[in-house]
Structure formats: structure tokens, C-alpha cells
């Protein structure tokens, strides 16, 4: 890096003469070493998946979850420093609960992403703190059905003033990715961590912007993409952790839950099969070249 040793990388809140905040860029480096995490926004839900590298054989399989639930309808997965991710989730839960305190209902995914973006950005402004060493993917489903206000006991007027507009469309899937700078965008498919380049290439092939991919297909694709992204660090064992949020009439009823074991294992099996087939084709291709 050109400006290393020139003093502008020692403190947060100090710009380098060419307008960069090096502390933030170093935080991004921390993220680039983390296990790959992805999110896919499907037409009837959102899938989150993470490649959990097994750092020790003494760790219990399936324990130490990396995808966290916020309120009931939002999930967060981070790549980078795990403790930073935990603190980030804790803040997200506080925001969701304070939203309920004021508005007596669940926080929309977009509003949560906005507040978390603001929170992360504040950690780029002061010399006394360091930026977050995580890039987080926030996925959620905002209810398309009309929700009761928290604590509501009755119905209110059935006709006349206070009646509702018929057929108004509301809610749907939300997927956001928040970077150490505080920058956040909404995505159809998001990837971060070590294997993000491979994962992004695979996500782009899915044509997510046409919003045709179903949640169940999304689960299969997510598993496959994590397996593809793991190819570059094949020497290490990993666990696939996967959660989903479906529409209110879908399998999770609008809640963020772990993908059931049978569906996950089936998706993993399909992912391994797809990888093997790819390898075989490559070998075949090479064989033909040799013949020529």
C-alpha cells in the first residue's frame, strides 16, 4: 500500500491527503480473511448461508452458530472478526426492540439496515475507536399480511372511517450488506468473506433481478455457492450453516429460522454432486485437448 509508513494509517478519523481512511481499509482486510457468507433474495423469501471453517476438532459440530436472529423476521450473518459480528448483532437486537417500543410492531428490514449503517459509520469518525472488522449481510421478510399492533386486543371499526385500502401491496423480502465504512446497499444476492469473488460470479449467473427464483431453489443454490467458494481453501474442513426467512404463507411463516436438517443435507448432497460433475467435465475437456 502506497501510504504505509506515512502516518495517515495510524488513526481513525484522519484522512490521508488523497482522501482515504486507512483504518477502514484495514478493517476490510480483516473481512477478506473471514469465512464466506452469502445472502440470496428470492421471490418468496431470503436465504443466508455461511462457510464455517472448523478451527479445532474439539469444537462440537453444529454448535457455535454464526447466523443470528434479530426480532423474529430478520437474520444477520457476518464475515470477519466474530466478536465484532456478535456486538453488531447485539446492537441490531437493541434497535429492533426499541423500534417495537416506539411503533408497537416489527422493524422493517430496510429501517434496520439504515440504523445499522449509521451505527457502523459512526465507528469511522473518532480516533478513540476502531471500525468494525465485519461486513454483515442482513436478510429479512417484512410481513405482506396486515399485522396486529403489539398488544392489540380488538378489531376496531369494520366499516367507515378507519377502514383499510383493499388490495394495497405491502412487505416482501429484504437483503442488505453493510461494510466497515458504514456503506450499505440493498442486493438481490450478496457475498462477502474469503470466497466472495467466486460466490459473486455464481450469484450473477442466477438472474436474481427477475425475481423468479423460489426459496427452495435458493436454498440449493446457496449451498452450492458456498461449496464452490470453498474450493480455494479445500485443505480446511468446513460446516455449512444456513438459515431462511419465508413469506408469511411459506415454510417459516415469515420467521427467521435454521433450514431444517433434511433440506440442508439434501442441498449439500446436490452441491457436492454438482462440483464432482464440474470436475469430471473439466477432466474430460483436458483429455480431449491432449488427444489433439
Amino acid at each position: 500500500m502506497t501510504s504505509i509508513g506515512t502516518g495517515y494509517d495510524l488513526s481513525n478519523s484522519v484522512f490521508s491527503p488523497d482522501g482515504r481512511n486507512f483504518q477502514v481499509e484495514y478493517a476490510v482486510k480483516a473481512v477478506e480473511n473471514g469465512g464466506t457468507a452469502i445472502g440470496i433474495r428470492c421471490k418468496d423469501g431470503v436465504v443466508l448461508a455461511v462457510e464455517k471453517i472448523i478451527t479445532s476438532k474439539l469444537l462440537k459440530p453444529g454448535a457455535n452458530k454464526r447466523i443470528a436472529t434479530v426480532d423474529r423476521h430478520v437474520g444477520i450473518v457476518s464475515a470477519g472478526l466474530v466478536p465484532d459480528g456478535r456486538h453488531f448483532v447485539s446492537r441490531a437486537r437493541d434497535e429492533a426492540s426499541s423500534w417495537r417500543g416506539v411503533y408497537k410492531g416489527p422493524i422493517p428490514t430496510s429501517a434496520l439496515a439504515n440504523r445499522l449503517g449509521g451505527y457502523v459509520q459512526a465507528y469511522t469518525l473518532y480516533s478513540s475507536v476502531r471500525p468494525f472488522g465485519v461486513t454483515s449481510i442482513v436478510g429479512g421478510w417484512d410481513s405482506e399480511a396486515e399485522l396486529a399492533v403489539d398488544g392489540q386486543v380488538g378489531q376496531g371499526p369494520q366499516s367507515g372511517a378507519g377502514g383499510k385500502v383493499e388490495g394495497a401491496k405491502a412487505g416482501g423480502p429484504g437483503l442488505y450488506m453493510i461494510e466497515p465504512s458504514g456503506l450499505y446497499w440493498g442486493y438481490y444476492g450478496a457475498a462477502t468473506g474469503k470466497g466472495r469473488q467466486a460466490a459473486k460470479a455464481e450469484l450473477e449467473k442466477l438472474d436474481l433481478s427477475s425475481e423468479k427464483l423460489s426459496l427452495l431453489d435458493g436454498v440449493k443454490e446457496a449451498a452450492r455457492i458456498i461449496y464452490v467458494a470453498h474450493e480455494d481453501s479445500k485443505d480446511k474442513d468446513f460446516e455449512l450453516e444456513m438459515t431462511w426467512i419465508s413469506s408469511v404463507d411459506g415454510p417459516t411463516k415469515g420467521r427467521h429460522e435454521e433450514v431444517p436438517q433434511d433440506i440442508r443435507e439434501e442441498a449439500e448432497k446436490a452441491a457436492r454432486r454438482a462440483l464432482d460433475e464440474e470436475e469430471e467435465e473439466e477432466d474430460k475437456g483436458q483429455g480431449e485437448q491432449m488427444e489433439e
Binding site: S97, R100, K104, D150, G151, Q152, V153
Partner: peptide
């Protein structure tokens, strides 16, 4: 009751 209901929800 509504207060307790919200408490239980949280």
C-alpha cells in the same frame, strides 16, 4: 394487560 402482553412478546 396490553403492557404485560408486550412484555411477554419481548
Amino acid at each position: 394487560m396490553q403492557y404485560i402482553d408486550r412484555l411477554l412478546e419481548s
